[in-house]
Design a protein around this nucleic acid. Structure first.
Length: 546
RNA sequence: GUGCCCGUGGCUCAACGGAUAGAGCGUUGGAUUCCGGAUCCAAAGGCUGUGGGUUCGAAUCCCACCGGGCACACCA
């Protein structure tokens, strides 16, 4: 039985034929959809092996051609240009692929490994920014994709719940609380002066009254801190919920200390001689592993561990929990952090490839001709929540997913908000809704398609669409290996484009010709199934009507 | 200064080392007695930042430079 990826099928046949013909394994080569006029698929196998075989590409191609004659579904093989081999496929195979997609959109099964994606991980000291939003969507989409191809995926949010930042948060809340009662207290330098704490202070006051005015000690500090932390976290979770992101695990930094993982990590590093003391602090010898990097402090002069140390322990914890690979999604501002973490991975003795980082660049918001730079400072649309409320979940998700994580994202708020043609999300969803409406219409006219023979399909556009459906598994596979969610967006968009164009040029539902209608409707059902699957990977809805 | 990322039509972006560099927005001109016009068709618009190199072939890989972003803490 053929797989759903025609490329893979052809690739395999070529590999076999090559081995048969030349007695050795082929060098890497690709099978691709060529520009129009060069057949259905093409390969560079002959050119790629010219060096290996010391033979002209065209001669290689000619020899392979003999071996490939046995493959019945390759109806034509041509050698062109510098040595491309161009194939045409039989109608039968296209019908077969389509019937598979009508039944079910199958994912390639790539692995069963236990892996983890950790992202967002913002400390609960303020509202999430649009940058966090991008990260959340990249992480969420990638985890969905990994899960779909068989990985055992855990998504995780790590946050600091005990450190200096949290104390400052508690103190800031206390200041706002006092202010409600007209009691002016001074902010400390590291305090959070954002106005968002005012509302939380009001809630606090209504729940607990005025007992803490002007009273500040350790006990009060702890109380305010935990109150503020919980409220901030509720807020963060609510925001994430609005964009459809939920985590399997919310991991507290403090648990590393409670569980003793930090002690273990320290013991391990000591045993392997990667730590030393100097100037009253404890250092991790990054340079012992990466000579061009600097060593880093892990225990401060005041005896408190640094964040880096917690991160080392956290990595150990991840490893001990049985993950084969862990993915960290970080903003570009953290890229400098990678080498020391790699060194830590090596020092802890986790396997190569265990530690993986996906870096994404920053987000800029654009509205009209105004470019709003993302900043911590509360302004217009800098918070993720404001953005989602304005453009909606589907558009937010799509726009964050649609660009290569490695490029700067200019988020066009007006475009995302628009319910018109230029908005790619609506364009794709419209294609889906259109098929649904088409099916309803056909049923009303008494046309059924469940037993369509597909024999009537004959137009180039029809086979082009089926061929593009057959790309689905390859797209998914490349997202897994390249960490590029935008490929899903591009795929969904192109498929919609092909569908809209086909729809406009051809009558699908025609009572005068029920047999042909059934075949064409079947094609549309395939398109619908793929679109729905792809939209679900993006976490956006597939409306039946709009 | 050092390191990482990016540089593709006016704007925002695609392109798996391959054949004629593709879309959308914007601009211009068309399509509806008919399945959803939230659609479609077409035109104009490019020395892929610059200069070298690698090879049968480079937007893609390497080097240098230019321009933009980010990072260089006992902060996270």
């Amino acid at each position: 039985m053929l797989r759903l990826s025609l490329r893979s099928e052809i690739h395999d046949k070529l590999s076999e034929s090559f081995l048969e013909t030349f007695g050795k394994k082929s060098a890497d080569f690709v099978v691709e959809i060529p520009p129009e006029g060069f057949g259905d698929y093409s390969t560079n196998i002959a050119m790629a092996n010219a060096k290996l075989l010391h033979m002209a590409p065209k001669r290689i191609a000619n020899k392979l051609l003999e071996a490939l004659k046995a493959v019945s579904w390759l109806t034509s093989i041509e050698i062109a240009g510098p040595g491309f081999m161009n194939f045409k496929l039989s109608k039968e195979i296209y019908k077969h692929v389509l019937s598979e997609f009508i039944e079910e959109v199958k994912f390639p099964k790539l692995a069963k490994e236990k892996v983890q994606f950790e992202f967002v991980s913002a400390n609960p000291t303020g509202p999430l920014t649009v940058g966090h939003g991008r990260q959340a969507i990249i992480g969420d989409v990638l985890s969905k994709v990994y899960r779909s191809v068989g990985y055992d995926v855990t998504t995780e949010y790590y946050f600091n719940d005990a450190g200096k930042q949290m104390k400052a948060l508690g103190h800031s809340l206390w200041i706002r609380y006092n202010a409600i009662y007209g009691e002016n207290q001074e902010f400390e330098e590291d305090d959070y002066k954002g106005e968002y704490l005012i509302n939380i202070a009001k809630e606090f006051a209504s729940e607990h009254g005025d007992a803490y005015i002007g009273k500040w000690n350790e006990e009060v500090q702890k109380f305010f801190t935990s109150y503020a932390r919980d409220r901030m976290f509720d807020w963060i979770k609510r925001t994430l919920d609005k964009i459809g992101v939920r985590f399997d695990v919310y991991f507290k930094e403090s648990s590393l200390y409670e569980k003793g993982v930090t002690d273990k990590a320290m013991a391990l590093l000591k045993k392997r001689e990667y730590v030393y003391e100097k100037d009253g602090t404890v250092w991790f010898a990054v340079s012992k592993i990466l000579p061009e990097e600097e060593d880093r402090v892990i225990i401060r002069k005041n005896g408190e561990p640094t964040y880096f140390f917690s991160d080392i322990a956290y990595m150990l914890d991840k490893y001990q929990r049985g993950f084969k690979r862990v993915y960290y999604i970080w903003g570009a501002d953290h890229h400098g952090y990678i080498p020391r973490m790699q060194a830590a991975a090596q020092a802890l003795g986790v396997p190569d490839n265990f530690f993986n980082v996906i870096i994404h660049q920053f987000v800029t918001l654009k509205s009209g001709n105004e470019v709003v730079r993302m900043s911590k400072r509360e302004g217009e649309f800098t918070s993720l929540e404001d953005l989602v409320e304005r453009v909606g979940k589907d558009a937010t998700r799509y726009f964050f997913a649609m660009l290569d994580p490695n490029t700067h994202l200019v988020f066009d708020v007006d475009l995302a908000e628009s319910k018109k043609m230029e908005n790619p999300v609506y364009y794709i969803q419209y294609a889906h809704a259109r098929v649904v409406s088409l099916l309803r219409n056909a049923r009303e006219k008494g046309i059924s398609w469940e037993n369509a023979t597909l024999e009537g399909l004959a137009l180039p556009a029809e086979f082009d669409i089926i061929r593009y459906m057959a790309e689905f598994q390859d797209v998914v596979t490349s997202v897994v290996s390249e960490y590029k969610p935008q490929k899903i967006c591009n795929y969904a968009y192109s498929l919609s484009e092909k569908f809209h164009s086909y729809y406009n040029a051809n009558k699908i539902v025609d009572v005068e010709n029920k047999k042909l209608s059934a075949d064409r409707i079947s094609l549309c059902v395939g398109v619908k199934n793929v679109l729905r699957t792809v939209l679900s990977l993006l976490g956006t809805s597939s409306p039946d009507s709009m």
